[in-house]
Design a protein around this nucleic acid. Sequence first.
DNA 1: GTCTGTGAAGGAGTTCACAGCT
DNA 2: AGCTGTGAACTCCTTCACAGAC
Lengths: 263, 263
Amino acid sequence: MATGRNHRPATSRSRGIPEATVARLPLYLRALTALSERSVPTVSSEELASAAGVNSAKLRKDFSYLGSYGTRGVGYDVEYLVYQISRELGLTQDWPVVIVGIGNLGAALANYGGFASRGFRVAALIDADPSLAGKPVAGIPVQHTDELEKIISDNGVSIGVIATPAGAAQQVCDRLVAAGITSILNFAPTVLSVPEGVDVRKVDLSIELQILAFHEQRKAGEEPTGAASEADTAPPAAPPAVAVAKRPPESGSDGDLPAVMPA
Amino acid sequence: MATGRNHRPATSRSRGIPEATVARLPLYLRALTALSERSVPTVSSEELASAAGVNSAKLRKDFSYLGSYGTRGVGYDVEYLVYQISRELGLTQDWPVVIVGIGNLGAALANYGGFASRGFRVAALIDADPSLAGKPVAGIPVQHTDELEKIISDNGVSIGVIATPAGAAQQVCDRLVAAGITSILNFAPTVLSVPEGVDVRKVDLSIELQILAFHEQRKAGEEPTGAASEADTAPPAAPPAVAVAKRPPESGSDGDLPAVMPA
DNA sequence: GTCTGTGAAGGAGTTCACAGCT
DNA sequence: AGCTGTGAACTCCTTCACAGAC
């Protein structure tokens, strides 16, 4: 999963919904929406689970945290569940969102159909490049960073998306938070530090690939050759302390940006 | 985290590295690379942990799975750790990657600097739109979907990135798998079904926002007003079975695409 | 004295398996 | 008979706290 976690330690006594369950609700919602469009009236936990890519026990347990909206011997009413999950996720209200950093990625996000169809509305696009100002992207004119605070308070925005290069992210984050934003979706490959009470979720494209590479590597070393590479079994058990790096230290600047700032 | 999990049930007896640890290795690697560029020779678990956004106990435990490369009383040698983690993740080798679907998102991915700086190399960009064929994106000419199988086998590609609209994703996935791809990073909002042995990781933009909205909603209903909205406390405890949806069923097609296919 | 490495305790999430309702 | 709802077992992950190496 492409996700950085960052949330209250779940210590609060609240008899709330487990994080893992919350993270799956959007999956269920998507599957249910598809069923709804096909006018399917009810689903069993088995059917819905397979459409959402989970197993049915998990799904039933998840729904039990929401209050158990099914009927034994029958299944779940599709429309009713769509409503309940939407409400639980807060999607029955309108969430204005600002996107900061309108490079390729920012533009992709602005064009993303999945936002509008849920409760999200792109309230503004913001970029530091003055030459972008006024240009429409996905039908919305880009505004300059100078306007950031005004845009946020005028529109009552509480969710911000950061799609800037890594170097600008913390600074943008600070301004968003100061302006009143309390939830941030961060696409820049940086760890953002935020005050208590602000939620950050992270999507990091290269991390996901690295995780895939890890598993891919394992596959390669499994069946085919008996000749395991030196890396496969146990690491050089001796803790070498002052050891030297065996590899050219990957010099050259990292250039670790998500998409591009307009050149 | 924006991540769909999908991996072998971890039942295999292997004394392997826990998934949760693998998912953090890229974070450590990023922080270490930054230290390396500043020529910092060693770090303590505390310092590195805070740079990576985790706590130090977790970090030490994680490293203990790799074989404990630190020195008590001192810390970790930065260069050496960079090497060990890179090796563990399989980044000391070259991973050719194809990106299918060159809309805004595909273009953003092609331009993404974080790939090249790790072991990844964009071997080809593929799109179904003939009018895109030959046009360079991020310096790489887009090729037509017809070439997909040939590209993959010619370049020995084992990792594919799907950035097409949802409707095309499963079909593209099937072709990728048939052509020999064994790891897929999926940006399309669909559950892909793949045969045993193929890894899929999912990044879903709208899911992340929905999770934020959930928490945002909670915040709103916490301190400020004592007047809790009807949604806040317990759900309508009665399991209404045949209940009617209380909300207009969000009609209108979902339009659930990630970025755009070239119009 | 400092900081790592790691057993042991604790907590979160998943799966099992069956009781209970329709 | 069929399918949900859920305690209980189990597995995975995190945190604690301190022994051990420098």
